[in-house]
């Protein structure tokens, strides 16, 4: 059964799309089969990678019934990672996209493609919308990227309220995978102080241990339509996403240990 993770943020420019692409790639390097879905009508992930050049069709065609999943999913060169874009969403089709999400058709389409993957990462549009609601409703967990600035932290309450609402109304099994500090500058005393203040205030388990540093290589990766780990100059930031993927796998092992502790295990096979 695949683990579907929505990456969502109320505040823009916090590295949401970069997180989806780089975490998806890093996770696939660890072995699992990964699908990245760009559910944002503005196609941020599609533009940040060269997937749109390979195949411009995507969710929109699936929603219209004009294509089959196999025709719109793009596979990465190195294998293990597939990409499903949003398709060529024009201004008037944004409403169609949202309506389809409201009618439940987006859920059906996404569910129809997730089965054969171990992990599915969904990039949603920034902010709160029907699409974000639907994506969270069909997900196992949510990652919230958080840049170390006051506005991003202040917007967190709204994001968590939204998450709580989805959990209460639509998906009782939804969990918060974690808040992820992104674009951090360890040389800035202000940012370091803000991160430490925020971490001290919140219960520790809501944060990922891994912190993603800001790196100019992010921009280079976008310009070259690739992921950080593929760039020689992106080694550091790319390594942080690999650390994040490892941390997620370790969490799953910890979850298994907890289940064994509670007598819910059924043996190794």
């Amino acid at each position: 059964m695949s683990k579907v993770i929505t990456v969502s943020s109320l505040k823009g420019g916090v590295g949401q799309t970069a997180t989806v692409l780089n975490l998806g790639y890093s996770m696939s390097r660890l072995g699992p089969k990964v699908l990245v879905i760009d559910a944002a009508p503005q196609s941020g992930a599609g533009m940040a990678s060269n997937a749109r050049q390979k195949n411009s069709a995507g969710l929109l065609e699936l929603l219209k019934g004009k294509a089959k999943a196999a025709d719109v999913i793009v596979s990465a060169r190195e294998g293990g990672l597939d990409f499903l874009g949003s398709g060529p969403v024009e201004a008037e089709e944004v409403i169609f996209f949202e309506k389809e999400a409201f009618r439940g058709n987006l859920t059906k389409v996404i569910r129809s493609v997730t089965d054969k993957y171990d992990y599915v990462f969904i990039d949603t549009a920034t902010g709160l919308s029907v699409i974000t609601y639907v994506c969270m409703a069909l997900s196992s967990s949510v990652i919230v990227p958080l840049a170390p600035n006051a506005l991003a932290v202040k917007s967190l309450a709204s994001m968590l309220k939204f998450f709580r609402r989805v959990r209460m109304r639509a998906n009782r099994n939804l969990v918060l995978e974690g808040l992820l500090f992104t674009m951090t500058d360890h040389t800035s005393p202000y940012e370091v102080s803000l991160i430490n203040d925020v971490r001290e205030g919140f219960p520790p388990q809501v944060f990922f241990e891994t912190v993603i540093p800001y790196d100019p290589a992010f921009e280079q990766a976008n310009a070259r339509a690739t992921v950080l780990a593929m760039l020689p100059e992106g080694e550091n930031a790319g390594r942080a996403y690999l650390d994040l993927a490892v941390e997620m796998r370790l969490r799953e092992m910890a979850q298994t240990r907890k289940e064994v502790e509670n007598g819910q295990d059924n043996g190794i096979f």
Binding site: L174, V206, R251, Q255
Partner: peptide, 8 residues
Amino acid sequence: SAVAISAR
């Protein structure tokens, strides 16, 4: 218990 279990 709506938060994923921490590895640490």
